[in-house]
Design a binder for these strands. Sequence first.
DNA 1: TGAAGTGAAGTAAGTGCTTACTTACTTCCC
DNA 2: GGGAAGTAAGTAAGCACTTACTTCACTTCA
Lengths: 211, 211
Amino acid sequence: MITTADHTMTRMPGDERRQQIIEEAVRLFSVNGFRGTTTKQIAAAAGISEAMVFRHFANKEELYAAILDHKACQHDLGDPLEAVSEQIANKDDWGVFHGIALNALRKHREDQNFFRLLLFSALEGHELARMFFESSVTGMYEALGSYIKTRQEDGAFKQLEPKAVVRAFVGMLIHHSLTTMLFDPGQKILKMTEEEAAHNFATVLLEGIKK
Amino acid sequence: MITTADHTMTRMPGDERRQQIIEEAVRLFSVNGFRGTTTKQIAAAAGISEAMVFRHFANKEELYAAILDHKACQHDLGDPLEAVSEQIANKDDWGVFHGIALNALRKHREDQNFFRLLLFSALEGHELARMFFESSVTGMYEALGSYIKTRQEDGAFKQLEPKAVVRAFVGMLIHHSLTTMLFDPGQKILKMTEEEAAHNFATVLLEGIKK
DNA sequence: TGAAGTGAAGTAAGTGCTTACTTACTTCCC
DNA sequence: GGGAAGTAAGTAAGCACTTACTTCACTTCA
């Protein structure tokens, strides 16, 4: 028998195997999409037979839902500005934007697979992915938007629509991650470290909105 | 016989039919992706039998390539800054950024289908789509980047990496179109006209980079 | 103590349906 | 009557999912 993975034949308790299937599925879905990935491929990647996939998940859709559940927990969904709470308290505007940018760029790089998967499913029209995307984006809009509003009231920022400003900022970050991921994985077009990118984006935005 | 389109049964000369197949395919590919669209669906949408699709295109891949070819011509690929050439000559910075923004947002709305299709194929790893995306993005990077460089030499703009500035700007625009398309088609989250969005983005960017 | 039984983890070999693509044939216009 | 435009009815491969069976660690109780 030919096996593709060295963990074949080693019996594992149910939950570990479940996790393993989920992880391989994330990898494959993120590369080929939901429709472009077969249950056979997933099984092979996990080093088990296809039937075992269906012992752990009623069907392909349920496996997919399990991935989103798992990832949603993993990605906290707590306060999106938690990492820069200190800067916010100090009204250190540059620190806030720089911190958010650096944080977001790092997160995107670390979980490119999940990022791709989300995009795929948003395009494929999967409800759960849509909800996840929507709620996490909405959270950022509200949190950062209210900070901008506060600073406008302080007279520190121009009177631009806060949501538009957030969209501009989030746009810089997501587009940067997306372009790098899809077209410039080797960072050959734009030779720039994460730190430099975050610095540039924070500078452009802050200078653009402060009075 | 049940037909889904009113043009069934009317004989058309070859090229017209070819165009029609391409148009229906664009619509379907953009909604369901390449893998998620069947040749039967395309045939039904065009009101012809599946065999006719294969009379016009050797296989599904060739149909896909024909779409990109067709769209690539349609989308000119001339100077990406042609529409704002006057503002560039006058060094009307705000006019340049505002014009580009308005132009891009309009184009994206008008050709959402093609935009979705491109994203799908970038994710699915289709070489041609990759090339199209890459060349059009690269064109913008070079054209706008060189304008920014000129204005930096004039002493009008700050010494930020031009490519990073372009990426920030393009990011605002693409992210706005993408988010609107995927999650906010009814414009309920961000109630903002194209003109307002372009105004905001141009202001944020220009104020962020000018001295 | 050890044979008998239990159940979870595993598989090989299907099933029926869908897919891209083909073939053999018809219709209709010039 | 020849050729382009069209079709109905395939075919082989691939898909999600099932079935019928095996393996083996671990109880249970005569």
